[in-house]
């Protein structure tokens, strides 16, 4: 089993993600450079957080054109596991591997804080170790995390059970207060119809060690490892 962490110019959670996979979970992990044309036979591609290409045009908008992303798209089309975290999620949206788009947080400020997420669907490679309804505490850190999708598409993704995480109160109650960035339908994490591409705004790699205040993010990596085993 081998993980690949993509580095775009401007990625800044690449080392954090690598550290968690390699040193915390003891998995074979390699970096994938954006200019390359090969995924080096990895089993799971992780698109990390950051500000790829400075995010000056739109978050994730330029990264989708990199040579490596054409490989990632092909890999995903064939059913390969792809996890996009924060900026990685934004890239997946721009690449149209996932539906919808991100707009600025509703308070127009960058938000870095712990949030609570209610797990909505556990029949996925990324959440199979969790129980439906589990609430996990994971940090967010983004400016553009206000998820938007046209009502018809929202209807479809609901019907397909594509919503994986929703912003909630610690007790699992969904509220506007818990929906800190203003996302439509409190959506924090979303999977594709093939069930192999997950995008999420919160950072599980920042919640995988006790010293960082939460270990709740581990469930996602544990699920992937379990799935691939």
């Amino acid at each position: 089993m081998k993980f690949g962490v993509v580095i775009f110019p401007g990625s800044n959670c690449d080392y954090d993600t690598y550290f968690v996979l390699k040193d915390v979970f003891d998995q074979e992990t390699t970096f994938l450079w954006h200019k390359e044309h090969s995924l080096h036979d990895v089993d799971c591609v992780v698109l990390p957080g950051g500000f790829s290409y400075g995010d000056y045009l739109r978050s994730g908008a330029i990264a989708k054109f990199s040579p490596l992303m054409q490989e990632v798209k092909e890999f995903a089309d064939k059913g390969g596991l792809v996890l996009g975290i924060c900026n990685g999620f934004q890239v997946l949206l721009e690449l149209e591997l996932l539906p919808g788009a991100m707009t600025r947080n509703k308070n127009l400020k960058f938000l870095c804080q712990h949030v609570h997420l209610r797990t909505e669907n556990t029949h996925t490679p990324f959440t199979n170790r969790a129980r439906k309804g589990d609430v996990i505490k994971i940090p967010i850190a983004h400016f553009d995390g206000n998820y938007f999708v046209e009502p018809e598409t929202l209807h479809t993704i609901k019907q397909n059970d594509q919503i994986i995480f929703r912003y909630s109160e610690p007790n699992g109650h969904l509220s506007e207060r818990a929906n800190v960035n203003g996302s439509m339908h409190n959506i924090a994490g979303l999977i594709n119809t093939g069930g192999n591409v997950l995008g999420m705004m919160p950072h599980p790699e920042r919640a995988s060690e006790a010293i960082l205040g939460s270990k709740d993010g581990r469930i996602i990596f544990e699920s992937i490892i379990h799935w691939l085993r």
Partner: peptide
Amino acid sequence: KVLANPII
């Protein structure tokens, strides 16, 4: 293709 995101 680049300047605008047609979804929004």
